[in-house]
Design a protein around this nucleic acid. Structure first.
Ligand SMILES: [Mn+2]
Ligand SMILES: [Mn+2]
Ligand SMILES: [Mn+2]
Ligand SMILES: [Mn+2]
Lengths: 218, 218
DNA sequence: TCAAAAATTTAGGCAAAACTAAAAAAAATT
DNA sequence: AATTTTTTTTAGTTTTGCCTAAATTTTTGA
């Protein structure tokens, strides 16, 4: 049985490894979890004892098979609960993340699998992020961050890879949502920002924002 | 902010005080929470510091106004989540308690109030127990435990005051559910058991079971 | 009323998960 | 290659919530 703290570490490692079994550094985990490197080292030892990660002193840590499955399950729960909050309880997309951070730790496979069915087996969460299925497999989609998308081509926003409410509220302000059509007019070299057209209206966005927008060619 | 352990203590005290501000003993709490009296004493001190209970050494503990409200909120959450599991996710009534024990600790008043609306403001949970409203008030109902109900009078089962799955499965086996009609034929003095008619079928139940059945005169 | 029994509290520890400060290893620079 | 900087680990504390054993208070009942 995994503790809440262990689950949060596994989830952080999964995210930092870009959802693979790549090696992740102690410092990166500490930063992600807003904790100290020494705390991370201690927890990694516990996770190693439980065979949830592979670890070599000073060399970093990677998820084991079972650690990966555990972490994916938490992401599955997080994203399904976000769907529930938006589609059944009328939450806005910027209100769901913090509650889902709590709900993702509820332990009951019957609960989450019933919820999945109740929601109609959604493929993506309210931010367009893919939901692992009951076997832990992702529907991989062919998208690029807007920051890497070519100029002058119509793209569709299919997701936002960051659940920070301040970002999401800003996107609302820009009238930018899942399904919006965008075209990059111009990349500004000086600060890596972008002139873009969103639903036929001219806008300017920073590199930091552009990185979070997942775009599919139309 | 209350911790999970604190919430479980408050809930236990509320239950043992019969949902009043009555004084409760250290040992009773220890038994309810399957912990040791010494642990209870320590926790009571913390709850006292937080002004959630009133306490005098060796004299027992009672909920304060704010402790009562906090405890009632947890009961409200517990029972609403049980409703959700049964009415939306098709759980059986004996499967919901353990999951609700986890869900009741999710912190978000928007979540629970939206859930209440989503469920249509139910007045009772799947076991017939009353659900406090958004202001923490119970709909008080005029029911008696079957063990105190008079003989030869038709009663209706309106609730079960214990969520133990083994009890609930046994009631299923007896075809006894919320709404069932019952008549006590005979009280057996030797073991305090009962001969009763459930939906026109003759049965025999123990005192322990009879105490959990809440009956309303028809 | 007063000793025995029961209930409760105190004292002293333990494990989980965090922290700070110091030591050690690895990486980057000169 | 040697030195400085950065990263990581170790050592020693803290807090929360639990435990056992011992001490104290209350209750029981002879
Ligand atoms: Mn989220
Ligand atoms: Mn999301
Ligand atoms: Mn219950
Ligand atoms: Mn119930």
């Amino acid at each position: 049985m995994t503790t809440l703290a262990e689950e949060n570490y596994l989830k952080a490692i999964l995210k930092l490894s870009n959802y693979t079994l790549e090696i992740v550094s102690t410092n990166a985990i500490a930063k992600e979890l807003k904790t100290k490197a020494s705390s991370v080292t201690e927890m990694i030892k516990k996770l190693t004892d439980k065979k949830l990660v592979n670890y070599q002193k000073y060399k970093g840590v990677s998820l084991s098979k079972s650690g990966y499955k555990t972490a994916i399950d938490i992401v599955r729960k997080h994203r399904l609960w976000e769907c529930f909050l938006v589609s059944k309880l009328q939450f806005d997309w910027d209100e769901v993340h913090d509650v889902a951070e709590q709900l993702e730790h509820i332990k009951s496979s019957k609960l989450i699998d019933s919820l999945d069915i109740f929601l109609g087996n959604p493929k993506t969460d309210p931010h367009g992020e893919p939901i692992p299925n009951i076997n832990g497999e992702f529907p991989k989609s062919n998208s690029l961050p807007l920051s890497e998308f070519p100029n002058d081509i119509i793209g569709e926003v299919i997701g936002v890879s960051n659940d920070d409410p301040s970002l999401l509220k800003y996107l609302d302000f820009l009238s930018l949502s899942i399904g919006s059509k965008v075209i990059i007019n111009k990349k500004i070299d000086f600060d890596n920002s972008f002139e873009i057209v969103i639903n036929n209206k001219q806008n300017h966005i920073s590199h930091k924002v552009a990185k979070t927008l997942l775009i599919r060619e139309l």
